[in-house]
Design a protein around this nucleic acid. Structure first.
Lengths: 121, 121
DNA sequence: ACCAAAAGACTACAGATGTAACCGATTTGA
DNA sequence: TCAAATCGGTTACATCTGTAGTCTTTTGGT
């Protein structure tokens, strides 16, 4: 998924489900896109299976084809396997440093690390 | 950076510094690429500033323009800002679950999480 | 000194991405 | 009811990516 497509996905996730118009209202305001740009992106996301559409009267309702976390996890996996094939530690460290995390998220991550079987060196 | 480019970067990182021939030997063996494919990728990576070249005799020596971790961190940052703009927790959790980490890496991550200032909810 | 091998440079071309105009159908406000 | 706004669909086009052929120059071997 390319950057412009992520922008559209984020909007859809926020709305949970919305019409083309909602999307291009936002992309116009946020990025100055022409409506047709948003429409093209929506079509491509449907083609790729990231979005589903349902017709409502003369108009269409877009919604994510799968839960956001699944899509995100897929992207993360692509990065991991594309980029480093195994040497993930330092990258995770970097991401933890740069991220804003809530107390619950921190707790969950600590728990995961406790449970994590270390790999032999 | 696209998938094919990552493949080349990984080879260069492994060699630290190498000639075009080393790269296309590997890409031929691993992915069945024609030598020219590897050469094109090398050129593009130089154009984009990911690789530096130095001439050695009639030939060129390629090496990373910046430390691998910096390139990787950049890619991770792009994913974070492209994809989710803030809601990193569940993604990190996913990555931790899927990763193989050494004992040292686990320790470092635990330490980072200890020190991490939680964000207000 | 010559020729085959190898290096890098240039060119190619299909598919993906970023960005958008135009078009015909329909809804709707006046 | 009639024109304006809107909808989704189709088409466009420049750039980037994946993959590779060709050309010219260098060079190592004989």
């Amino acid at each position: 998924m390319a950057a412009a497509e992520w922008k559209v996905m984020r909007i859809i996730w926020r709305y949970q489900s919305c019409a083309a118009r909602d999307v291009y209202k936002e992309t116009a305001a946020e990025f100055g896109w022409a409506p047709s740009t948003a429409k093209t992106l929506l079509r491509r996301l449907v083609d790729k299976g990231y979005l589903q559409v349902r017709q409502i009267g003369n108009s269409f309702l877009y919604r994510p084809a799968e839960p956001a976390i699944k899509t995100l996890a897929g992207a993360a996996d692509a990065l991991l396997s594309n980029a480093l094939e195994g040497a993930v530690g330092p990258l995770l460290a970097h991401m933890v440093k740069k991220s804003k995390l809530t107390e619950e998220e921190l707790a969950q991550l600590r728990k995961l690390l406790e449970e994590h079987q270390p790999r032999e060196k």
